[in-house]
Amino acid sequence: MYSVLHLITEKQSEKDINMADKLIRAITDDGKFRAIAIEATDMMKTVATFHDASQLGITILGRALLGSLMVSNAILKGDERLAISIDGQGPAGKVVVEASAQGEVRGYVTNPKVTLPLTPKGQPDVANAVGTDGFLSVTKDFGANEPFTGQVALVTGEIGDDLTYYMAKSEQIPSAVAVSVLVDPDGTIVTAGGFMVSTLPDATDEDIATLEDKLANFPAISTQMLEGFTPSDLLNNLFGEEQVKVLSTTEVNLYPEIAKHDYARMLATLPLTELQEILAEDHGVEIIDRFTGKIINFDENELQAIIASKDANGL
């Protein structure tokens, strides 16, 4: 069967509402810091069913999905969206994520089955799996057919650190991005969450130094989530009770899956001669959705119908 990869549509539809997974935007009462915090454990449990991933592979993808959601909500608005590509030449391959300001996300790791020994601290070795011999690229789509791409060199390959560096260098917004995805060795998602803190103009060097000290001594996000702490709790634990005002809450979820009829429309954009060649040689088409791992098949009759319609319209 002929394989067509990376077919993507812009189609969106109604989705199930899951209030357990949410992203909050907040500001400190003194107006010196803006913060975003997220919990997406249930969403990550769904993602884990899509990809035949190792503990390390799903940890990498989860960090990228959560970090991209927070970055998109920090720098986008309305229907705007972004695509993040992380390629550090490591054994995990490329990490690709799409996210919107409305809380939707999807992504994949080129080699989701990547395995490496645990770090000396007993953690999945994300840094060496991703690598640092490359770049993190962010392409912002503002809906005007003029996407803008910013790129920075990878710093540590840990993803959170690299998004932190991107925010400071490319967006000129000093920030700290922390993402955590706790995965059992069998691939079961235990917790998934994180936060991003950005400085505002009123923050002094002393304020920033104090925050850096707090971050350096902040308990592990996964430990706090296991104790039942919510995104709001994470920020209260960082800045102090009653020191943070929540401005808005957004549900987070995966982009709707691409329907077969949408794939049919995408196939119809291929040249007629190419479709006829596929029909003659392979008698059908097999499409692999890289975001879900699902296979969509078009048999000989279905492909003939696409060709007939295209030919009838003189395309």
Rank of each mutant, 00 (worst) to 15 (best):
E212A: 01
R34E: 14
E10C: 00
A153H: 09
E274L: 10
D162Y: 06
K22W: 00
D87V: 03
T59W: 02
D79F: 00
I189G: 06
D133H: 08
D299R: 04
E286C: 08
L247V: 13
V183M: 07
Q102K: 06
L211F: 00
D141E: 11
T49K: 13
D299H: 05
L163M: 14
P271A: 04
A176N: 10
D233M: 08
G150N: 09
E171H: 10
T230L: 05
I306T: 08
T115W: 00
K113P: 09
M43W: 06
L303S: 12
D30I: 08
H283D: 15
N301C: 03
L279E: 15
S68Q: 08
I288K: 15
V246W: 01
V179N: 02
R265V: 11
L234R: 08
N313G: 11
N18Q: 13
L118G: 08
L136D: 10
T115R: 11
S248I: 04
S54I: 10
V130Q: 00
L163S: 05
E10Q: 12
G93S: 10
A220P: 06
A203I: 14
V181D: 06
L76A: 07
I84V: 15
A144M: 14
S3L: 12
K113G: 14
A192Q: 11
A35C: 11
S180I: 09
E251L: 04
R265E: 14
M70N: 05
A99I: 09
F142E: 06
R106P: 15
L275M: 02
S68V: 10
K32W: 05
S309R: 12
T164P: 11
F218S: 01
V105G: 04
I258P: 10
M44V: 12
A216V: 00
L76G: 09
P271I: 06
Q89Y: 01
S54C: 11
V96N: 10
V181Q: 03
P91T: 06
T59P: 07
T250M: 02
V155N: 03
S100Q: 05
P256H: 04
M70H: 02
S180M: 07
P124G: 08
G103Q: 05
G31A: 09
Q102L: 03
D29A: 10
A178R: 01
T210G: 01
T269A: 06
N217K: 05
E257P: 06
G122T: 13
S68Y: 07
K260F: 09
N18K: 13
D184Q: 15
I258G: 04
L247H: 04
S309D: 15
V155A: 03
I84D: 03
S100K: 01
A216I: 00
F148T: 14
P117D: 08
R25F: 00
P219K: 00
S137E: 12
A220N: 12
S85R: 13
D282T: 13
V97S: 07
F195I: 01
D52P: 09
L65Q: 07
L215T: 00
